[in-house]
Design a protein around this nucleic acid. Structure first.
Lengths: 216, 216
DNA sequence: GAATACATCTATGAATACATTGAAAGGCGG
DNA sequence: CCGCCTTTCAATGTATTCATAGATGTATTC
């Protein structure tokens, strides 16, 4: 039925992530296989496999015979997610500083520029996507597929918090600061200053986290 | 047919990990769904799901229509695995230094003591298991489920190297040093010296890696 | 009226049947 | 003999069907 060349599991996976990141499903909601299958016009099998993957990636949790659900945000969990992100992303930044070429950096500069534009035009969804592009792009520059994978999982998981608190988030200075901080990080990477890149990334993530906990 | 109360996927998962860690399947080998299914006396479904999980965990790779296989060790991959382990395990160690109680530490001391005994009695398999217990136990003490998960995946992945080079490995001083280094790390954690714990863990992992690359 | 045993319902777990596809063997023409 | 095309096959990808576990509601008993 579907002409797309990607396999169904991959499509299901992306669709589900999309549904979550666009907040169509909220924390606490159950993602039922049959429901998703009919929504996405495919059988339970690929949906089920995609869900299983999201669970092993730590993005969803599973209750036996109840279904998968988006974990409810808790202060403790937020702490763990952001601490883990700090730990790994700072390594990634320092590794990127050592490995990246002019072209790599130019690409990310471009992303940041688009981020700034997206902020000015208040295109929330695009902004989120570009933020993801920046962080995951950096992870790729680390040249370490394992750190890259960890980064991706943690980034997505932390996004749940950002979306959950979106209404607050928008009123802070964070969205405005983001492109600036991203550029500072790129500056450090361009200067091959791995120590500084690591530190800036750490602070960048911590700032988001600290904003988050102030909102409870 | 099967009397075990755990579900089949979990059993398949454990069995497959076991088959790999005991070197019954070696790097480069394909793990075929049908073959495993018949070997483990279950249908393709749980086997397939278990394999998928191992792939997302980075423990196996998948070639479409060919099967999952244990990635061939390469110098580049080894570098990535051990670098990632260093990065994460050092964070884990420093977090453990901040969180752990007397009882936690006592438990790990016990593991290390058994490690020493296992080394003396040349019980290779037990030694490997205890090493795992130590590192994953420490990950648990970090109190961060995300870092814990990353740690576990990377540990297993790095184990492929250790088993692959087992014959060389045995002739080095590493197996003898391991319990000593583990105890040093525990000392630092007990003294709540997170900086030192982190540094020692980093060196501990790097030593294994450097031994590895000398063997090519 | 409360507690327990039992029926029922819902969602996943597992098995099986069927479709797809990548790779390699083998045939055919040059 | 070599290279290209076709065919076949082996392995996974997907759908469907059946089984089962956990939750919930209900009736019966004390």
């Amino acid at each position: 039925m579907n002409k797309n060349m990607e396999n169904s599991e991959e499509r299901a996976y992306r669709s589900i992530v999309e549904l979550i990141l666009t907040n169509e499903y909220k924390p606490g909601d159950f993602l039922l296989e049959v429901e998703l299958a009919s929504k996405l016009n495919m059988s339970r099998t690929p949906v089920s496999r995609a869900l299983a993957r999201l669970v092993t990636e730590g993005f969803l949790e599973r209750m036996k015979k109840k279904g998968c659900f988006i974990p409810l945000p808790t202060p403790e969990d937020a702490k763990q997610v952001f601490f883990a992100r700090e730990a790994i992303a700072s390594y990634v930044a320092s590794a990127a500083a050592l490995n990246s070429t002019k072209e790599d950096i130019a690409k990310l500069r471009n992303v940041v520029e688009k981020e700034r534009e997206a902020f000015l035009s208040k295109n929330k969804k695009l902004e989120a996507k570009l933020n993801e592009d920046f962080h995951l792009g950096l992870a790729q520059l680390s040249g370490n597929q394992y750190l890259q994978k960890c980064c991706r999982n943690l980034f997505w998981r932390s996004n749940v918090y950002i979306f959950y608190f979106d209404s607050f988030y928008r009123d802070t200075e964070i969205p405005q600061l983001t492109p600036l901080q991203h550029n500072e990080i790129l500056d450090a990477i361009e200067a091959k200053d791995s120590e500084l890149a690591s530190e800036l990334m750490c602070k960048h993530i911590r700032r988001t986290y600290e904003m988050l906990i102030k909102m409870r």
